[in-house]
Design a protein around this nucleic acid. Structure first.
Length: 413
RNA sequence: GCCGGGGUAGGGUAGCGGUUAUCCUGUAGCCCUGUGGAGGCUACGAUUCGAGUUCGACUCUCGGUCCCGGCCCCA
């Protein structure tokens, strides 16, 4: 019986895996240089963690299960909630800010399509303990730097939920959520219809529609003209000033709603070309989940990067390490093992385990793209040396193992 | 959950209601047991699953499943 890979999952073959690790490494370098520390949380969590954050409706999209102790569990669909849970469980006494990052697989029970899988990888950052614009700006700058390191030119949209919430504050919570959803989808006709349907006040309607299409450098001033001087606008203005200092291009977009109730202020999304319907590669904002999870009133800000979508559009290739193949005959096989071990201190070394003859070993070395072959034959051993062959040029020389080590390590630098 | 397009050796493909099917590539072996890439030969290897129509289905019909694109959703 042939067993297939589960729907929405992928096998990563060696070349692809190498590329993924390479790009991951680049992004890791960036986030570490910003002083962030990596954390790992469990692959599965209590189902409650996510229903508390997102409501019962989320269960339809989860890989949940009942364990043998009758506990309701789920594979994690994202990492913000687990990180916040971890903070509440064991990091509340740590001095702020906490600057954390993670790179882990997540699971969602969804219909797979381009850029969307049932198992996917998220690179994420959470800053815990600062409600300042400085934290928001740093997080956005970090996100763009990480994308830069993968060679992704993203389109950054920045907004602030406080402003749209201010306009909607006279409505019922239910109505606010519905409007936020429509705004987030950029469904203008749907929004119009809905405002009509709930009989929203005329000035609210005018202000809202005006606000969500404001763009450009003076968007903040225009917003001020529409809704007056509210503190959220000053905060947002401050954020933009900081982003300018970081040298980051952005589009002001008051239409970003993220659809989620726990986002409190700054929100941002980064889009990229070439991904079809799933063109968002990064999303984040400031939020407060810690209070919801039974901790103090601690603000946070963070983002998640869809790593698989990055890989879809990034064209960085991993550089291959130098490969060495040690070639032996039946009579020199045992010596070849010792020599291979020596050489493994400086390069990846392959040794025949197929009982191939000399010619076949050479042919195989060529097939796997060896940079060097080291021939360990009777003639060489009699001289206390080995033959080093450069597979590119075909040149070969009879030298000692130490000399081989030296030559190979010089070349791979 | 919905709409559309697909599924033929490990990978990529061709064809046809009528001898278990083409070509490329691959893998293993040989020509050739101390020097790779080429060439020749041999072997291995497939019609997604189920039901129906039919004398006969890889081909036609229906259903499942999986893949791809989109909708919904997207914490």
């Amino acid at each position: 019986m042939k067993i297939n890979r589960p729907r929405g999952t992928r096998d990563f073959l060696p070349e692809v895996t190498a590329r993924r690790r390479h790009v991951e490494g680049k992004m890791r370098d960036v986030v570490k240089n910003w002083g962030y520390s990596e954390i790992i949380t469990p692959t599965f969590e209590s189902l409650d963690l996510f229903t508390l954050k997102s409501g019962e409706g989320i269960i339809g999209e989860l890989y949940n299960f009942t364990d043998k102790g009758d506990r309701e569990m789920t594979l994690r669909p994202e990492l913000t909630a687990p990180v916040m849970r971890m903070y509440v469980n064991e990091m509340q006494a740590t001095q702020k800010p906490l600057k954390l990052f993670y790179f882990e697989n997540c699971f969602r029970y969804e219909r797979p399509q381009k850029g969307r899988f049932r198992e996917f990888w998220q690179f994420g950052v959470e800053v815990i303990g600062s409600s300042r614009s400085d934290a928001d700006a740093e997080v956005i700058a970090l996100a763009t730097n990480m994308l830069d390191s993968a060679g992704i030119k993203g389109d950054l949209h920045v907004g602030h939920l406080g402003i749209i919430r201010h306009i909607l504050s006279v409505l019922e919570i239910e109505q606010q959520s519905q409007i936020m959803r429509l705004v987030d989808k950029k469904d203008d006709t749907g929004l119009d219809d809905y405002l009509e349907q709930i009989n929203a006040p005329a000035d609210l309607r005018r202000n809202l529609l005006e606000l969500i299409c404001l763009t450009g450098n003076d968007a903040v001033e225009k917003a001020r003209a529409v809704i007056g001087g509210i503190p959220e606008l000053d905060t947002f203005k401050e954020l933009l000033t900081l982003l300018d200092a970081y040298g980051i291009d952005y589009n002001v977009d008051f239409g970003i709603a993220r659809g989620l109730d726990y986002y409190t202020g700054m929100v941002f999304e980064i889009y990229a070309e070439g991904l079809g319907a799933q063109n968002q590669v990064c999303g984040g904002g400031s939020y407060n989940l810690i209070k919801l999870f039974g901790g103090g009133d601690v603000p946070s800000t963070g983002f998640g990067i869809g790593f698989d979508r990055i890989m879809e559009i990034c064209d960085i290739e991993a550089d291959e390490p130098k490969k060495v193949v040690v070639i032996s005959t039946d009579s020199t096989r045992l010596d070849a093992i010792k020599i291979a071990n020596e050489l493994r201190r400086v390069a990846p070394v392959h040794l025949d385990i197929m009982k191939r003859n000399f010619k076949k070993q050479m042919s195989h070395a060529n097939y796997i793209g060896a940079d060097y072959t080291v021939i360990v034959g009777e003639r060489e051993l009699e001289a206390g040396k080995v033959t080093l062959k450069d597979m590119e040029s075909g040149e070969q020389s009879l030298i000692s193992v130490d000399e081989v080590t030296r030559k190979i390590s010089l070349r791979s630098i």
